[in-house]
Structures are given as C-alpha cells and as structure tokens.
Design a protein around this nucleic acid. Structure first.
Lengths: 218, 218
DNA sequence: CGCGCATTTGACGCAATTCAACCATCGTGG
DNA sequence: CCACGATGGTTGAATTGCGTCAAATGCGCG
C-alpha cells in the first residue's frame, strides 16, 4: 500500500487555515493545481481521497474544458473509472490522498463507480436541460453537501475549492455567468460571501427551489 | 431466469422490416414506447437487451426531459445503475429483452456500469461544451456505431430509433435545432436520408471532424 | 508600491430557442 | 378507396439567454 500521505513536502503548498476563526482569515493561494496520475505505465491507479478536493475533467482540441465531477474526502478515484486517453484528474487544492491497490479494492472501486454513475446522470440533466440559474444553485447545494463543516458560530459555510472558471467548466457556463448568478444570489440573500471562495448558505429552501426549477426565473 | 423474450404477443407492435430491401420500405410506427420497470417492490431488476433500443431518462418538474443514455443490443441494464427515484427506462421500439437475476450477475452489471460511466463522462463533455452541430454529429457517429448493420449494397445505413425530439432530449437541444442540423448535414452530403428515420453516413471523416470541433463552424 | 490574477459588472452579439406555418405520412372510418 | 385528423418533421422569422468583449475593482504577493 504505497502511501502518498502528506504530499506537502513534495508540494510545499500553503496550508488551508481553519475558516471558523474569529478574525476573518484570508483563504487564498490554494490554487496550485496538482495533476493526479490515473495510470502508471498504462496500468490504472487507484486513490482514496482523505482531504481536499479533486476534479475529473476532459478537454477538447481547442480551449474548451469540461469538469466531469468533483470529489471531496472519502471518495475512491481510479483509472478504472475513466477513459484514460481522454480524462484527467487534478487536485484543486493541497490534497491528501493515499494510493491503494487496484486489484485488492475492486469492491470499493465498483461502489464508487455506481455512485459516480448516478452523479453523472444527475449532472447530465443539469447540463442538458437546466438554466444558468438552476445550474449554479444546484452546484452550491452539491458542494455544500460535500464540503460543509460546521463553523463554531453555527453558520453553515463551506469552502468553495473551485474558482469561478472551474465552476463554469463543471456547469457548462462561462465564469462571467457564474459570477453573475452568484452575485444575484447574494443580492437576493440566498447566500452570503465576502471572500469569493467562502460561501454561506442563508436560504437552502430558496436555493433548492431555484435548483429544481420550481421558480420560473426569479 | 424469468424470460421476457418476445413481448410481441403482449404488445402486438409492428415488426421492423429489413431495411436492405430493393423497394424502399416504410419503417414507421415503431414509436410505441414501452416503459421498462427498473425495480419490482423496491428491488432492482436487471435486463439484457437482445434487440431494439432502450433509453434511460430523467424528467424535471415541468416538461423538460433529459435522455441520459441510449442502449442497443448486448447491453445489460439494471436498476442498480440508476437513482430509482429519478430515473426511468423505456424502449423506443419493439424490444426483445430478458430479465436476469441481479444477484447472480454482479459481474456483468459492474462491467456495464463502468462502460456507462465512461459514456456518461463523454456525454458530459458533449452537453457542457459542444455546439449544436458538434452534438448532432457526435450523436450520429455514436448511434451508427451501435445500430449499423450492413446493407447488401454496401451502404452503411442505420435505423435511427429515436425521433428528432428524443435526439434533442439526449443532446440538450430542441427538435427544431436537431432537424436543422440534420438537414444541413444532408445538404452538405455528410449524410443521406429519404425517410427521416433511416440514415446513411456518406462522409464519416467529415462528421468526425465536425464532432470533434476541428471545423470551426462550417 | 505596483504587478498579476481572479472576480465583478456592463454593453453588445449571436447561437439556439421559441413561435408559427406548412408538409408528409400514417391510421381510421365512412 | 378516399377523406381526414393526428403525429412527426421541416423550415422561416422573431426573440432571448448566455457568451464575448471590455473595463474596473479588489486582493495577494514580490
């Protein structure tokens, strides 16, 4: 079991500070993106994500990129899950992950595949049939589910590991559109943020209504 | 092994005629869409598709629908693969499928899941980042791969089981846009069709170029 | 301090949708 | 056998949501 725990030495990136501190901390510069190899010598590799955020993405010949899924702690990510010729994985912040044997973990890989498949199907609906507003609302709910930790003041905030551009590449939008949606949500008091990467959900019901298209436009 | 072979008695649908006949046959009225139950009493069911075409889809509260994937003969389709609360399956023509035991076929189900996952990822790129032209070109290549049989005159035609609307719901477009793209491809001699549901690919390279965005717009 | 990058915001353009008309084909019933 | 309504496909014109381009702001870092 080859351990990749604490790649911090190899990649001396900035440590994410706790975001429940009293004085508002700056959470910057976690933007060094680390490529995660999904195969070695053509053999699929498998990792368990212990901390941080990893995205799976594909690119087109031109500049276009599509982020296929976003994973938080607990996920098992494997070269078995993707088309190795087309798909790549990267951590969008200082990650902590351990490599595990692909053969010995078929069970966990299959289970992850089933979960990923259902997520991919749900995201297909988002990409194919939802408006920009609905997409961004869906994304916020999804990410808050994966990354929310309770702050000591009871507020339910989460660290948005992704930049506006990455969010856009996940949702099939542009970063300007994402930014506009987030600004509107903020103005409408559905969410709050001072720093662009630390989001507080203020009205989960409202967001859910937007995400499911219950509200025609708002 | 509960067999569902030959549902023709229960659903006396029209038989698909061979489409390599001399006099051009009409291939109509395969539009009776049969719902395929993915669970019975909450227990996931599994089928092997022997003939025909099955689609997996989800719907939004309003009229919006997203077709998630399209399966031809050989696929194993299971309730294990989807969110049973959100996802449904239907045959878009008279299908022939056999029910198989979910427990005894974990291997085949997993293998299908991996294939579906990779397809879903590829389709994510289509939905998120491709233009209408690219989407329709991609779809034609995909479907020709799954459904082409060789006509005796050497032409490579295939039966398009899906209507324009269904194609649109797969590609995240409207049926008008799909129709316009197909008409343009026909005018540009990339494809040919007299009946709207029998497509001949005349220029696979050209379609491929369009699908991968190599040609900026054309 | 000032450079660089991410984000925000505004003005404008366009690709795809919407709305609408029309055509072809099939199935049905007189 | 033909007339007719229903369904699906095609095509055109008008509309619009999102993209593109551009400029301003804010923040981190050297």
């Amino acid at each position: 079991m080859l351990s990749m725990l604490s790649r911090d030495e190899a990649f001396p990136l900035h440590v994410l500070r706790q975001f429940s501190q009293a004085s508002i901390p700056r959470i910057r510069n976690f933007s060094a993106h680390i490529d995660i190899p999904l195969a070695r010598l053509g053999v699929p590799l498998t990792f368990r994500l212990l901390r941080g955020c990893v995205v799976l993405y594909r690119e087109l010949s031109d500049e276009r990129r599509q982020i296929l899924d976003i994973f938080g702690p607990g996920w098992v990510i494997s070269g078995e899950h993707v088309d190795l010729h087309e798909c790549r994985a990267m951590a969008v912040c200082d990650p902590r992950l351990e490599e595990i044997e692909t053969e010995q973990n078929a069970e966990a890989i299959n289970e992850a595949a089933m979960r990923m498949l259902k997520r991919a199907q749900a995201h297909g609906l988002v990409l194919g049939r939802q408006t920009a507003t609905e997409r961004v609302a869906s994304a916020l709910l999804d990410l808050s589910g994966q990354f929310t930790r309770q702050g000591h003041d009871g507020r339910s905030s989460f660290l948005l590991y992704l930049s506006r551009s990455e969010l856009a590449d996940w949702l099939g939008l542009t970063h300007e559109t994402v930014s506009r949606c987030l600004s509107r949500f903020k103005r409408d008091r559905l969410i709050a943020f001072d720093q662009p990467e630390l989001i507080t959900i203020r009205d989960r019901q409202g967001l859910l209504a937007l995400a499911t298209g219950a509200t025609p436009a708002a």
